[in-house]
Structures are given as C-alpha cells and as structure tokens.
Design a protein around this nucleic acid. Sequence first.
DNA 1: CTCTATTGATATGTATACTGATGATTAGTA
DNA 2: TACTAATCATCAGTATACATATCAATAGAG
Lengths: 154, 154
Amino acid sequence: MTQIYDLPGHQIRRLHQISVAVFAAQTRAAGFDLTPVQYAALASLRDHPGIDQATLAGLIAYDRVTIGGVVSRLEARGYLQRKVRDGDRRARSLTLTERGESLLATIQPAVRATQDQLMAGLAPDERDAFMRLLAKLTEAGNHLSRAPFEGGEA
Amino acid sequence: MTQIYDLPGHQIRRLHQISVAVFAAQTRAAGFDLTPVQYAALASLRDHPGIDQATLAGLIAYDRVTIGGVVSRLEARGYLQRKVRDGDRRARSLTLTERGESLLATIQPAVRATQDQLMAGLAPDERDAFMRLLAKLTEAGNHLSRAPFEGGEA
DNA sequence: CTCTATTGATATGTATACTGATGATTAGTA
DNA sequence: TACTAATCATCAGTATACATATCAATAGAG
C-alpha cells in the first residue's frame, strides 16, 4: 500500500525541514537573522565577486527567479551591491559590501554548529558514508532539477 | 573557508529540490496535478480516515498552518471532505471522497516511478544504506523541527 | 460550577520555490 | 547589416513553509 514513511522523498523532505529549522535556531542564537539561501548566496559571492544573478543561481543551484528575490532582500539589508555590468546592460554585477563580508566572518561558528547538530545522530564513519551517498545522488539527479548546479569544479 | 558544497544542509536541500521536481514531472506525465504534500495528506488520510487537521499534520510532519492551506485546496478540488466533528466543534474531521480514493489508486505507479528515478544514482545496496542512515537522521533530529512527526508506530 | 490553561483552526506577514510570460539587450547568422 | 535566436532579469500567479497572534471551544483545577 506504500506507506509514505518508506518513500525516500518523504524522509528527504523531513531532513531538509529539520536542517532549515536548525540553521534558523543556530544563527538566531548567535544573534543573526539569515536564512540558508541567503547564507549560500553571500558565501558564494565572497568566492566569486562580480558575478551576475544567473551565474550565482547556477553556483548554488537555485532558481533564477528565487535568487532575484533573495538578492533584492540582501541588497535592501545592505549586505551586497547590485550594479549594471559594463559591456552587458542586461546583467547585474553582484558584490559583497563591508557589512556582508563582516557578517560572513562572524556567522561562521553558527554555520558549523548547524552541521554538527544536524549530523549528531550518526557516528563519524556513518556521516562520511551518508555524505558520500548524498553527493552521489545529487550529482546523478542534477539534470532533473529546474535549478541544476552549473559551475565547473565544485 | 567552508565551501557551501561541503555542508550537509546544502546537499540535502538540493536532493529535496530534485525530489520535488521529479515528483512533479512524473505525476504530470501520468496526467495528474498533485504536489508531494498533497499526496502525503491524501495517502495518510486513506490510512486514518476521520482524523482532524492537527493529527494529520503530526502524521506527515508538517506545520499545522501549512496543512490548513493544503487541505483547503484539496477540498476545493473535491478530493476530501471537511466537517465539524461531533463532540468537539473546534476540530474538523477529514475524509477522502470517492474522487480522492480513486486518485490515490491511479497515481500509485507515478509515485513509485518517482522514487525509482530519485534513487537511480545508487546501487541497490547503497540505496538500503542511504535509507537507513536517512531514517536515523530524521529520527534523531525530529525534535528539532517545529513540525515533528507525531503518531506512534510508523 | 467558574476560572484558567490548552487546543484546533485560522489570519497575517515574510521568505522560499517554480511555471509561464515578457521586456531589454546581446550574439549569431544570412 | 538586417533578422533571428539566445540570454538576463523581472512580473504574475500558485503552492509550500514558518513565526506570531487571535478566536472559538474544550478540559482541568479548585
């Protein structure tokens, strides 16, 4: 009869939900107010200054429309700057502000604590196994998403 | 510097995203228009007829407010009935309609195909290992979610 | 039996996510 | 160079998700 509890999709959704909740709790406890996507966007921007929204979306595997909104809110809060790119007036170049850089630096412990708490249910060797299988699955299914990862190395 | 690609939360989110996309594609290809939550709600209702919204939310580990909206849409589309419960006029008893029952019966192959496609990247023994670790993680982290699973056996 | 705490459902507001469409701009081709 | 295709960003619409608050109704304590 297919109990939903046996469906991978159901369990994955639950773990995702837990992950988001833990991230929110940890960052709030550390005095920040940032969502996982917002963090991913800022962290990726630190490593790739000046990229446009579409490139950013590809790097963190998010929908371009969604990233438009995320970037908008981050800009409104002063964490990044958006400006029309020279040579291609369609694109908006994104750069972290001082405020964005400093946020990334100070939020690091909370991010680490999130991952520790999330994986606390597994022994160290199980975590490695889980992460390996997880990476294998996302790689194999990447093309099935409307927002696939795009961007070379990793 | 903590690349986001090494963070469990990031990979879990990606797999969840892929999972939702595959579910949508498979059910649409089969001629249906149903989201994963909607399916979970209907399937759980089939096994537990007459429960109220809060109980349903606990069984499928969803926020009560979210389930209110989901149930609303399912009712509007004629898949379930909502009526005030005798003895407790706060609660709404939920029951599948004929239409809901028949939808569940016919959508089964698409649901199965979704899970197959989702796990296609892993060998059979790897799938078992992944599912075992995944279940262990959701169980260990259940209490960290605002919408924990509540409901005995499964 | 009354007062209070709890509970089921909903309202409000914010933030993802995705589909489909459009406008502006650039690139590629004949 | 004129035309067409592709690309970047955005708009409109729908559906999750969650925090916080409120209303109606029930349960428990005294």
